[in-house]
Design a protein around this nucleic acid. Structure first.
Lengths: 96, 96
DNA sequence: GGCGTCCAATGCTGTCTCGGCATGGCTCGG
DNA sequence: CCGAGCCATGCCGAGACAGCATTGGACGCC
């Protein structure tokens, strides 16, 4: 389970297509497809239903989607917060 | 920024020593040391003060520690939740 | 003051991961 | 049927990463 996998999962869930999600993430379809398979393997359940038109979320996928969004948002917040902290610190104490 | 790096960071923060944290994570000291350096590089600020006795958290590190714990806990919850979902589902519908 | 100790950082190497290319299998519409 | 569109898979090369060995610096002890 990696943040990259979660990002891939969210993108596929939102696009409904592995190929489109791949374009959005500046990736190609095969690795993205493998990210989803890896997640499903790790969680022991299917997250998407494969249709000839694309990917449709299953209940387990819906659940994961909520958690994944929250996790990714938290990571983003953490990075931003620490970054801001350091720049403020730097301008408060110009140099030692 | 990866979950592995965050785990390493939390372990070092709690142990106060890279070496001890490494043992706790079943890893060796060099890669763990590099995880911390990578985080510091990515965030653009020092997270620890290096003392001859080990590593002491700096303010930016304290901040990150809170976020990191929460993120890791969320990931754990997400995995557990989806796993439980799937096993319940499986026992409700014995087979299709 | 020199020496052994304890710590993190770094150079290096083998392995393993991972992304991209090419292709296969499946379903549907004409 | 045939062609198009979708995801899955086999394969390969580049890059990432862990571990080993070593360096470098700071203390404490004699």
């Amino acid at each position: 389970m990696s943040l990259t996998h979660l990002q891939s999962f969210v993108a596929v869930a939102e696009e409904g297509h592995v190929g489109r999600a791949a374009r959005r993430l500046h990736l190609t379809q095969p690795p993205l497809s493998r990210h989803i398979l890896a997640l499903e393997d790790e969680l022991g359940t299917r997250l998407f239903e494969r249709t000839p038109r694309g990917m449709r979320l299953l209940p387990a996928g819906e659940t994961l989607l909520c958690h994944a969004r929250r996790i990714l948002a938290d990571v983003d917040t953490a990075v931003r917060t620490v970054r801001n902290l350091s720049t403020r610190e730097r301008s408060t104490h110009p140099e030692s």
